[in-house]
Write a protein that binds this DNA or RNA. Sequence first.
DNA 1: AAACTATAAGTGGAAATGCGCATATAGGAA
DNA 2: TTCCTATATGCGCATTTCCACTTATAGTTT
Lengths: 129, 129
Amino acid sequence: MHKVVKAVKALSDETRLRILNLLMEKECCVCEVMQALNISQTRASRNLNILYDAGFLKMRREGLWSLYSIDTENKDYLIGLVEAARKALEGHYVVVRDKERLRKASRVGPGCARPHNARESGVSIQGVI
Amino acid sequence: MHKVVKAVKALSDETRLRILNLLMEKECCVCEVMQALNISQTRASRNLNILYDAGFLKMRREGLWSLYSIDTENKDYLIGLVEAARKALEGHYVVVRDKERLRKASRVGPGCARPHNARESGVSIQGVI
DNA sequence: AAACTATAAGTGGAAATGCGCATATAGGAA
DNA sequence: TTCCTATATGCGCATTTCCACTTATAGTTT
């Protein structure tokens, strides 16, 4: 019961529903998620971890990248929740746009690992100070 | 999208998942819910209203009673979420016990509309002062 | 080695949430 | 009418959630 509540809580946030929607498309690294959703690195990482912690995702490392994907070999109730979420999100403008941006996102391209505001203005901060 | 988030948020609480589980059994008034879950009247009413507001429930009045039930003529995505929740809760001790207490609960019996603590000790408060 | 990059984690603060207490409302009974 | 009962709601408080800012970690490149 507690695990079920935790799982549903993990889904009860727009950012995380959008992330789940992305991962239905394909395995993503953190920087792809932040680009596609146009959110900060902290926010992408934290929310990916919440979904992971709730049992929805699996993760593997590849060099510097943490690659997250939906764990399809999961408990039935988690699969059911993901499926319900997928149907619920289907066709909504926000998630369609997210997937469009995902297509343009690059795993090594500019914009990765920069604070949200900096990305907007095109200015890198990390390593500047 | 906003409505979907609202719906999932409504499900992301143990009390409300337990209420939904009860209503899968049958239409209930507030005092049946509070008896079955052994929670306060305020808590039952508030959480029923949250589920109602999210679109999961319909309500009808019958004398003093507000009778809530799952709205089966609802949007597909809501049905899907309810179904996913049902599967996820299936067999858990808490919800099994709730349903047992629901069977023993009475719509007009003692315990209705009394503050939680008072019900525990069997003392009525409303109207005493 | 140093510099760079992708990700994770600590901190603090604003906002949202959940609940109990008290009270309000409204229908029913006496 | 007055009293009782079922439900709803205003309020305050404790807790949780979500985020940005910053810093840490660890792998990569030079």
